[in-house]
Simulated assay, not measured.
Amino acid sequence: MDKTFPSAADAVADIGDGASLAVGGFGLCGIPAALIAALHTQGAGSLRVVSNNCGTDGHGLGVLLGAGRISRVTGSYVGENKEFARQYLSGELEVELVPQGTLAERLRAGGCGIPAFYTPAGVGTPLAEGGIPWRHTADGGVALASPAKETRAFQGRDFVLEEAITCDFALVRAARGDRHGNLVFDKSARNFNPLAAMAGRVTIAEVEELVEPGVLEPDGIHLPGVFVQRVVALTARQAADKQIEKRTVAP
């Protein structure tokens, strides 16, 4: 039951080229920065990433993106990542944009063994009808477009069918965790982390504080250890390394 690994490098050592990854975080909040850095050093490429966004230039998943190691992104938000936009528009990166709530539910459904579900989000738009560019050509044309999705009426209202997401691995960050993989997240840093963890066949969690089994109150656990296969305890320096995407102060 002891799921701890001695380092982030050891925990990501078997992630190979072409692996699919569900990655927690929102902007730079709650991102598994140590695991991402270890994966960058490890060298895997052609990664297919599912995450709300792809970090920023030089931070979070932006580190892997800038190194040309990500081939496909399923996400909701491009944000401030200029390299993300450049790679997408130049045809270097395949991108599937998904409504944020739909992305959350697709990850949750994958973790619960639900193959697909119907949602009203996107009905009557190119999201349902198809044709959204997933990959561009170098000259700005469309190399690959999204397919049309099944729609169905329930009680007089149309819904679109969305498929669940599961990934080879998931990378997440928690404030506290025990050796059995039970995790507790800190406020808004919870964001997509539990959902990404549920969707990974092998879920790797970096924790700011590692405690012994029994220390965490059962009612206070946000994600049970059944969804987590590997736990990495961060150093004090790694735990304190939290970037701010946009610093805003009062006049």
Rank of each mutant, 00 (worst) to 15 (best):
E129A: 15
E129V: 08
E129L: 12
G130A: 04
G130Y: 04
G131C: 09
G131S: 08
I132E: 07
I132V: 13
P133F: 01
P133W: 02
P133E: 06
W134D: 08
W134H: 15
R135G: 07
R135D: 04
R135Y: 04
R135H: 09
R135C: 14
H136P: 03
H136G: 08
H136Y: 14
H136I: 09
T137P: 02
T137M: 09
T137I: 07
T137K: 07
A138Q: 13
A138L: 15
D139S: 12
D139H: 04
D139E: 15
G140D: 06
G140I: 07
G141Q: 06
G141E: 08
G141V: 06
G141P: 11
V142C: 13
V142G: 07
L144D: 14
L144F: 10
A145M: 13
A145S: 13
S146E: 02
S146A: 12
P147N: 06
P147M: 06
P147V: 10
A148T: 08
A148Y: 04
A148Q: 05
A148M: 03
K149S: 06
K149P: 00
K149M: 06
K149H: 10
K149V: 03
E150G: 01
E150M: 05
E150T: 06
E150V: 05
E150Q: 13
E150C: 11
T151Q: 09
T151G: 08
T151S: 08
R152F: 13
R152M: 14
R152A: 10
R152D: 11
R152W: 09
A153F: 13
A153W: 09
A153M: 11
A153Q: 15
F154R: 06
F154K: 00
F154D: 03
G156W: 00
G156P: 01
R157C: 12
R157P: 03
D158H: 10
D158Y: 12
F159M: 11
F159C: 07
F159Q: 10
V160Y: 04
V160N: 00
V160K: 01
L161N: 12
E162Q: 09
E162A: 11
E162P: 02
E162M: 08
E162I: 13
E163K: 14
A164K: 01
A164S: 10
I165E: 00
I165F: 04
I165H: 02
I165C: 07
T166P: 03
T166E: 05
T166C: 10
C167V: 11
C167W: 04
C167G: 06
C167H: 01
D168K: 08
D168M: 09
D168T: 10
D168N: 02
D168S: 11
F169D: 01
F169Q: 02
F169C: 05
A170R: 01
L171K: 03
V172K: 02
V172Q: 05
R173M: 14
R173Y: 09
R173P: 04
R173W: 14
R173E: 12
R173T: 13
A174S: 02
A174W: 00
A175Q: 10
A175P: 00
A175I: 05
A175L: 12
R176F: 13
R176V: 15
R176G: 05
R176L: 15
R176C: 12
G177M: 05
G177E: 00
G177W: 00
G177R: 01
G177L: 00
D178F: 02
D178A: 01
R179G: 05
R179K: 15
R179D: 02
R179Q: 14
R179M: 09
R179E: 13
